[in-house]
């Protein structure tokens, strides 16, 4: 039997990778992928807790399904924004998009 802690460690590693990706990558699409990694880490957490602490209830699993749904919608929206930025500025490098100020 695999212990709950192993899942939590996996989730933590995935989340940290995601954070690192968001902070270190410069390409918008890669940042988005890192965000997906963080979301998935959270999903693993949910499912693991659901299976180990209260298997008779589906709360955690339903949460995971919601996270997947929201993530899909978010990616759809974010990719559209990235596409518009690329059309406008011929780059998807976030360092070169610094118009978000006064």
């Amino acid at each position: 039997m695999i212990r709950l802690e192993s899942f939590l460690v996996l989730s933590a590693i995935l989340f940290s990778l995601g954070v690192y990706g968001v902070l270190a990558r410069r390409h918008a699409v890669l940042i988005l992928m890192s965000v997906e990694l963080m979301l998935n880490a959270a999903s693993i957490n949910m499912v693991a807790f659901a299976a180990y602490t209260s298997p008779e209830r589906f709360t955690g699993i339903i949460f995971a399904i919601f996270i997947i749904t929201v993530a899909a919608a978010e990616v759809g929206l974010a990719l559209a924004i990235v596409l518009r930025i690329f059309r406008n500025r011929t780059t998807a490098n976030v360092d070169e998009v610094h118009q978000l100020k006064w």
Binding site: V19, V22, L23, D95, K101, W102
Partner: peptide, 17 residues
């Protein structure tokens, strides 16, 4: 304070983290 904004997404993300 608004003149200290960089407008760079990675800065904001780093500060947030």
């Amino acid at each position: 304070l608004k003149f200290h904004e960089t407008g760079l997404m990675p800065n904001y993300a780093l500060l947030m983290t």
